[in-house]
Amino acid sequence: MLSYCFNEQVIQITESSDENDVQFLIKVLQKDPYVEKMQKVRRFFDDNRVYTDVLFYALADHTYKVIVRIDFYADFILELMKHRLLESVEWKSGQ
């Protein structure tokens, strides 16, 4: 299972899951440059021709609800990492 860490001064992430999806609520606390990075993550999944993999819903105050299909969970986490919205990602064995 993937485990990740983030800087709580920059971003807040909460995660919940059901049978098919993982839902993230992501609040970007520092607008520059992290909102733009978040938009790049969104654009990546908007442009990849799979329409239901990762769905973004922009809410007020730079808060994003993101519904991620379970089979795209790792892709989403790694894209956040690529744009340095996460500080570290690691595989936790035995879980």
Binding site: T52, L55, Y57
Partner: peptide, 11 residues
């Protein structure tokens, strides 16, 4: 329209 439709109906 299709991507927006998936987004709204999933929500």
């Amino acid at each position: 329209m299709v991507p927006v439709t998936f987004s709204i109906t999933r929500q």
